[in-house]
Write a protein that binds this DNA or RNA. Structure first.
Lengths: 120, 120
DNA sequence: ATTAAATATGATCATATACGCATATAGTTG
DNA sequence: CAACTATATGCGTATATGATCATATTTAAT
């Protein structure tokens, strides 16, 4: 069993960061750095959805949504399930929830502070 | 006081996601999606450092490191402090720690699972 | 077997951005 | 003021990737 995360050296037992590990972490963040993908994730927070439902919910084109879903699936963030003609996607990596919560919380705090600077 | 994060609709009281909010969140992830920036953050986990120290620690060029530090500072992730000729950078947003822990943990789990598929 | 529906993919274009080089700016010291 | 150090920035280039259009692929229905 590998010890808990320390790829970025923040745990009690810091480790060296290989270029490969850095690339993996960067890639994960990159996958989450597109508004349309975040919109799709947001739609999936409520549960499994098929592609067409996501196309309608997101307002994107079918081709584009399909590509983004694949990107998320390849990253291990989404799971793919085929049922007849339809393909269902669902969130496979629960850490996404906390991840988004953290980022949102941080951004809201920033926003509040910025607002405070100008207030009154 | 704004209620705790729900920009991505995961809290008890889900909210609508504006395009602007999506762009902000995506931008935060994009800033974290470059290996060199992650390397710099990693160096800063131990505490405040000036640019030259970061240049040496990261192995990058001075110009490139300076640009990346600015990107991180503009995003509110780093704080900038000038002291004589030197400029010190430090992590200003503590959520970065948890963020990286989360991602690393998730990636390590993925890695373990992938390995398990092939093991024996 | 044909047709239709749902999804994926190839090709192209446009845009963003990381890097390197040279140089500018700011601050220090003589 | 001149020379030097630390950091930032303008510019050009290379690369990556997102959007769109057209088309391919898969599965179901008649």
């Amino acid at each position: 069993m590998s010890s808990p995360c320390s790829l970025l050296g923040m745990s009690k037992k810091p480790r060296v960061l290989t270029d490969e590990a850095l690339a993996l972490i960067a890639r994960r963040f990159a996958v989450l750095s597109e508004p349309m993908r975040l919109r799709l994730l947001h739609s999936l927070f409520a549960g499994e959805r098929h592609v067409n439902a996501l196309v309608e919910a997101s307002g994107g084109t079918q081709a584009n949504v399909s590509r983004h879903l694949q990107t998320l699936a390849n990253a291990g963030i989404l799971a793919r399930r085929k049922e007849g003609l339809q393909v269902f996607y669902a969130i496979a990596d629960p850490s996404i929830f906390e991840l988004c919560e953290l980022v949102c919380g941080s951004l809201e705090k920033q926003h509040t502070q910025r607002a405070g600077v100008f207030a009154r």
